[in-house]
Amino acid sequence: MSNYEDLREREHEYIRIGDILERFKRIDEEYKHEPWTLEQIFSNLNMLSSKE
């Protein structure tokens, strides 16, 4: 998956579920599998959406 700016340019495209899962998996590994707060979950979902 590409970075935030690339996603904003592709605002009319769909994001595959697999791409979303890969993003969450990478972030989860980065934070050593600690429980996520709702704020962390929502901020990651917002980054994936094409419109704020």
Rank of each mutant, 00 (worst) to 15 (best):
Y31V: 14
R16S: 14
W36F: 02
L21K: 15
Y14R: 02
S43W: 07
Y31H: 13
S50F: 11
K25D: 12
Q40W: 04
I41W: 02
K51P: 06
S2G: 14
E22G: 13
Q40L: 03
E11Y: 12
D28S: 15
L7K: 14
S49K: 11
D6R: 11
L45Q: 11
R10Q: 08
Q40E: 12
I27M: 07
S50N: 15
I27E: 15
K51F: 08
E52W: 02
S2L: 13
R8Y: 09
R10W: 05
Y31S: 09
R10D: 01
S49I: 00
R23D: 09
S2F: 09
I27Y: 12
Y31P: 00
E13P: 04
I17V: 14
R8G: 06
L21W: 08
N46D: 11
H33L: 02
S2I: 12
M1V: 10
S2E: 13
H12V: 04
E13T: 06
E30M: 10
E30N: 11
P35G: 02
K32E: 03
K51D: 09
N44C: 03
S43Y: 07
Q40F: 00
R23C: 13
I17H: 12
P35Y: 06
N46V: 11
I17D: 10
I17T: 10
D6N: 12
E30I: 02
I17S: 10
R16A: 15
W36D: 02
I41G: 05
